[in-house]
Design a protein around this nucleic acid. Sequence first.
DNA 1: GTCATTGCAAAACATTTGCATGCTA
DNA 2: TAGCATGCAAATGTTTTGCAATGAC
Lengths: 160, 160
Amino acid sequence: MVQWPHERIVSMSVSADHRKEYDLSGLRLTAQRRAILCVLRATTEHPEAGWIYEQVRKELPRISLATVYRNLAQLAETGLVTELDVGGARRWDGQVKPHDHIVCLRCGSVEDLDVLADRERLEERVSQSSGFIVYTHQLYLQGLCPRCQREEALDTSTEA
Amino acid sequence: MVQWPHERIVSMSVSADHRKEYDLSGLRLTAQRRAILCVLRATTEHPEAGWIYEQVRKELPRISLATVYRNLAQLAETGLVTELDVGGARRWDGQVKPHDHIVCLRCGSVEDLDVLADRERLEERVSQSSGFIVYTHQLYLQGLCPRCQREEALDTSTEA
DNA sequence: GTCATTGCAAAACATTTGCATGCTA
DNA sequence: TAGCATGCAAATGTTTTGCAATGAC
């Protein structure tokens, strides 16, 4: 269940208080937009659009999947959420402070990491060597999560 | 046009010489497999499956797109090519030596980089801090390539 | 009131799968 | 000859788009 910050949304309308809480820098504050952002900020799951859609639908049953996709794209462009390309369907992250990710190749789970030391210098270095203007960067690691390690061990011992 | 290493393929069959050149570690050496690998090794474009399909089709007009996808997946699993998740469709890299990539957000082009210093220690560090078994990692940077910088400048001056 | 935003339905893509046939080892 | 690999066609799953109606500012 999604946790709303202060109160449940009852109607489609949005109170003045919400406006301060969600600085959408230019984007209009709609109930849909707010709900999507709220769901994304309330989870550490790095979900796909479809999952976000299902969650938001509990509060706004008439929202459409297209609206979810459109909003995610806009929010990412505005820098309010982060797009993750970890193979398979796109995933989304409500956390925008730069950080890294590790993906489990068995179950697909994604966890946050903080690996890279001096991100600004890294971008600067690449900018100079490549001639690109560098906007951002992402480090993904791939592996096997602790839980899947246990399950693989179980599977192997059962096989024998 | 794709450059074949030594000779053009005429029939579907594969000579003994090719077997040494393409160590597929267990996978059978088919003309399709060889052509896909060859196309991928001959380009620096980091292409999508569809592009590879079009190239291979010049030599093997009856190859199917499904075969391209199946082979790319197998070759990646065998460690003979690298899968790239840079947003949009999947891309593929014939170069398997670990390296980094920068993507132009305007034109989608992808270039090779060598940014990270001690990859092994990086993986080891994450392995210890996260409990994951780390298989591999990838660093993507996003930005604006030199060519697109020029074109953006042109667009802006024309607008005014 | 204006124009961004939405819901709905259809379309567009990218990718995968089932199955009979063909080919490598 | 065994079974991996292929071509074809159909299915799947994700993401985008057109358009009329709605709602934020």
